[in-house]
Every structure is written in structure tokens, then in C-alpha cells.
Write a protein that binds this DNA or RNA. Structure first.
Length: 415
RNA sequence: GUGGACGUAGCUCAAUUGGUAGAGCCCCGGCUUGUGAUGCCGGUGGUUGUGGGUUCAAGUCCCAUCGUCCACCCCA
């Protein structure tokens, strides 16, 4: 091999084994989402860079250091989308749907973040996301969470737990932020450098600092839950009682903080401890202010995204559909007839491989390797008699049949 | 972006203190003519991730680079 040609760091190929799992996940998602009347959208992978600067937030890691952003040949500043919500809001506004009532959307596709790769953390990864627009009140949050839980359940992913929190809103967060900043400034010298930087830029992020000495200082730190306004409090209560009504288990984790600026009120995460450090498998929350901040009317919104590759890592391999029959042609004279037979079998809906002729041994080995149920042998005798030899590989039983009869045996799929 | 582990055949891995690169699996073929899965025999396949350096001699030591993995960080 000359100079090795390989994919870009952190960008992996979807080979058959992996894609089979993805398709399984997609099928379950489509089925579950359909029962909530959610419609699929397919949105651009390239977006204007400014979209994410204005929505996700200029100070966030995603925007400030992880975006694949560049100028195109015309001098436009564009980027590969790092997440799906901003583009969905952009499309919602661009299509003029703000007076069209509730919109319930889902999407699946690749996202791009230039991070240091790890297991469960790729530079190109796939998300399945759901966004609701113009849907008010905690009932939407409750039903969305139940749906997310059902999605994970139907996939067979058991070992996750749901953590929820409230982040307040534009009415109450500024006051809380002040309270928190005051508290943090009093202890600034005991906090790590990163935390000190964040006191001014994003004090809520200090709360989930992993540093032990920081955490020790933050034991009695003021928590959002206790400082939200009456409306937010009512929303959070509605969320909790709704989850109780549906028997959805959850724990309130006052330290959940979203890394994207647009979230308010409800924030949630389904986490697992089976993926090492990348334990969040599905997460989201409310973002009631985003539509307005991107130029639309005040519009409530809530959504989540799940990481396809992370879900796939929690699932066993999906067995490939089993081959019904391998057509083995013996001798060049029988090739034309064998090709017609293979074609006819496929038209009956059977899964067929033509072994390509050659020795009987070679073709039987192919059938064996492909895990075929039957081998259909066509040689001089079969062509002469106008039939086929059909052998069941597991039992070794073999008989001569007219083609129609062989088709019936194959279609029965009972052996 | 920071710190660490690792990179040998298609795959999983060996190779004493530097001394001629090996095994298993897979693949291809043979063990009488049109019959597989077990067995026996044989074969293909490597400039040891890449590029430099030290040495009589480098898979082994040193430097750089690329990649994978782990932790930090971040998040799906």
C-alpha cells in the first residue's frame, strides 16, 4: 500500500454492521414519533455561521472552538451544522410557519464538531432530534419525555436514568445569576481558573465543574430550582406531576446545565454509565426565547436530540436477513438457464445469490459462508429435465423438483 | 486544547537483554468425475502506521508526524 488513504480524524465509515443498527434505531424512532403526529424534516448541513453564533451562543465551546466554519468561494461565512435546533428554528421562520399553529418535527442526520475524538464522541456524528414549536405548557414537556423513554424502551435500552432540572426564564434568571455571581465571587480564590473565568461569562456552568475542591466549595451554592419565578415554578411542578402521572421515573438534578445558551425552564438528560465519560444518550429542554431572538415572534419551543452512535453502542448487532437460496450452476451450458431461474426466484420475493458457476464444491462453500437455507443446483441433467435440484443445507436433504414446486418450498420458509 | 496508553499479515495477537518477522482464524487450491459445514496437505498475503535519527545490526532505542483508545474538557 502506498501512502495510506484514510478518513479524516474522528470521522468514521458506516459499514454494514453499523448501518444495520442505525436503520433499526431509525425505524423505531419513526414508529414512535408517528404516534405523536411528528413529521420528518430534512434540513441543510451547511448553514450560515451567524445562525449558530446567535442561537447556540458565541461564548459556548461549540461555537467558539468546535465549528467547522469557513469562507466559501463567494466570500460567504458558512459552516457545517454543529447541532440541529438552530437550523430547525431558521427553517420554521423562513417557511413562515409562525402563525400555522403547533409544529412537531423530527430529523436525523450528521452533525459536526471539531473535538478531540473519544469513544462516543466523533467529529461527524448523527443525531435524531425532535422539535416542537408553538407548544406551550408542561404537558408538551411531559409527553415528549415519555415519548423519549418509550423510544429507548422499544430499542431495548434499559440502563438509563432520567435527570431533570429547571433553568428559569428571562424573567427570573438574571436575578438568580446575580445571586450566584455574588456567592461565587466570595469564594473565587478557592475555585479553579476555569471557574473563575466563568463567574463572569457563564456562572451557571461553574456549578457542574468536576474539580473536587470546587465542588467542595459549592455544596451550599444557591440552586436555580429555589430561585425561579412563580411561572417557572408552576411549569416545573406541572412537569413533575405529569411525569408522576405517567409513572416516568426521574431525579431532579439541580446541577444540570445545558452547554447551549438558548435553553430555559425544562432541561433533561437520559444518561447511562455504560459509555464511560460520554454518558448522555438523549438530552434536551425548552428554548422558549430562541425563535424570538432569531427574528420571529415570541414562540414557545421544546426539543431533544439523541446521539445515534451512542445508542448504537448500547445495542447488540442486528443479524443480517438470511439468504433463502444460492443458485449453483454446473457447467457453462447451464449458466443461461440458471440466470433465468435466479431472476425468477427474486421476482417471487426470495433472497437469492447466484454463485457464479465453477465447481460444485466452491459454490456450496459460498452457500455455507452466506448462511443460505438452500442450494439450488442446475447442471446438465436439470436443464435436460427442465427442473432443479434443491438441497436443504442444514439437513442435507436433496430432491429433484419442477421449478414451480421448488419455489413453493422456498416461499414456505418453514425450514 | 491538555495529559496518558497503544499502532506487527484482511482479523486477533506472538517475537528473550537490539541479532534473518511467526501463529491461529479468514481467503484460495488439493485430498478421483455434480455436493458444503469436521479432518489432512499446500498456497497467497508484511518496506512492523508514516518519516527521520542512533547502531555493524532496529518491530525492539530516540525524535517527529498521522491514527485509535482513555482521562480532562465538552456534549448527543
Amino acid at each position: 500500500m502506498a501512502k495510506k488513504l484514510q478518513s479524516i480524524r474522528g470521522i468514521h465509515d458506516g459499514l454494514p454492521t453499523e448501518v444495520a443498527k442505525w436503520r433499526n434505531i431509525e425505524d423505531v424512532a419513526r414508529k414512535v414519533f408517528a404516534s405523536h403526529a411528528i413529521s420528518e424534516v430534512r434540513l441543510p448541513i451547511l448553514e450560515p455561521k451567524s445562525l449558530f453564533v446567535r442561537s447556540v451562543g458565541e461564548e459556548t465551546d461549540i461555537v467558539s472552538k468546535e465549528m467547522y466554519a469557513f469562507e466559501d468561494q463567494g466570500g460567504d461565512h458558512i459552516c457545517l451544522r454543529p447541532e440541529g435546533t438552530a437550523g430547525a428554528v431558521r427553517a420554521y421562520l423562513q417557511a413562515g410557519l409562525t402563525r400555522a399553529g403547533a409544529q412537531r418535527w423530527f430529523y436525523m442526520g450528521p452533525m459536526f464538531r471539531r473535538e478531540r475524538p473519544q469513544k462516543g464522541r466523533l467529529r461527524q456524528f448523527q443525531q435524531i432530534g425532535v422539535e416542537y414549536f408553538a407548544v406551550n405548557g408542561p404537558v408538551a414537556d411531559v409527553e415528549m419525555l415519555r415519548m423519549a423513554q418509550q423510544f429507548l424502551d422499544e430499542l431495548g435500552i434499559q440502563q438509563t436514568r432520567l435527570e431533570i432540572n429547571t433553568l428559569g426564564c428571562s424573567a427570573c434568571r438574571p436575578a438568580y445569576r446575580e445571586t450566584l455571581m455574588t456567592y461565587l465571587k466570595e469564594r473565587a480564590e478557592s475555585l479553579c481558573a476555569t471557574c473563575n473565568d466563568r463567574i463572569e461569562t457563564n456562572p451557571m456552568r461553574v456549578l457542574d465543574c468536576k474539580n473536587k475542591t470546587c465542588q467542595a466549595q459549592l455544596l451550599d451554592a444557591p440552586e436555580v430550582v429555589a430561585h425561579v419565578c412563580d411561572d417557572c415554578d408552576a411549569h416545573f411542578s406541572g412537569l413533575k406531576s405529569g411525569l408522576d402521572a405517567l409513572a416516568v421515573d426521574y431525579t431532579v438534578n439541580p446541577r444540570i446545565v445545558r452547554g447551549l445558551d438558548y435553553y430555559n425552564r425544562t432541561a433533561f438528560e437520559f444518561v447511562t454509565d455504560q459509555l464511560g465519560a460520554q454518558g448522555t444518550v438523549l438530552a434536551g429542554g425548552r428554548y422558549d426565547g430562541l425563535v424570538e431572538s432569531l427574528g420571529g415572534p415570541a414562540t414557545s419551543a421544546v426539543g431533544f436530540a439523541a446521539g445515534m452512535e451512542r445508542l448504537a453502542m448500547l445495542l447488540p448487532d442486528v443479524p443480517e436477513p438470511r439468504l433463502d437460496v444460492v443458485v449453483a450452476a454446473l457447467g457453462d451450458e447451464s449458466l443461461p438457464y440458471s440466470l433465468r431461474v435466479a431472476d425468477a426466484l427474486r421476482q417471487q420475493g426470495l433472497i437469492v445469490i447466484h454463485a457464479g458457476g465453477g465447481t460444485a464444491k466452491r459454490q456450496f462453500k459460498i452457500a455455507d459462508r452466506e448462511n443460505s437455507r438452500f442450494v439450488l443446483v442446475i447442471g446438465e441433467d436439470e436443464v435436460a429435465k427442465g427442473g432443479v435440484m434443491l438441497k436443504h443445507l442444514k439437513t442435507g436433504k436433496q430432491d429433484f423438483y419442477r421449478l414451480d414446486d421448488a419455489v413453493q418450498i422456498l416461499l414456505a420458509r418453514d425450514v
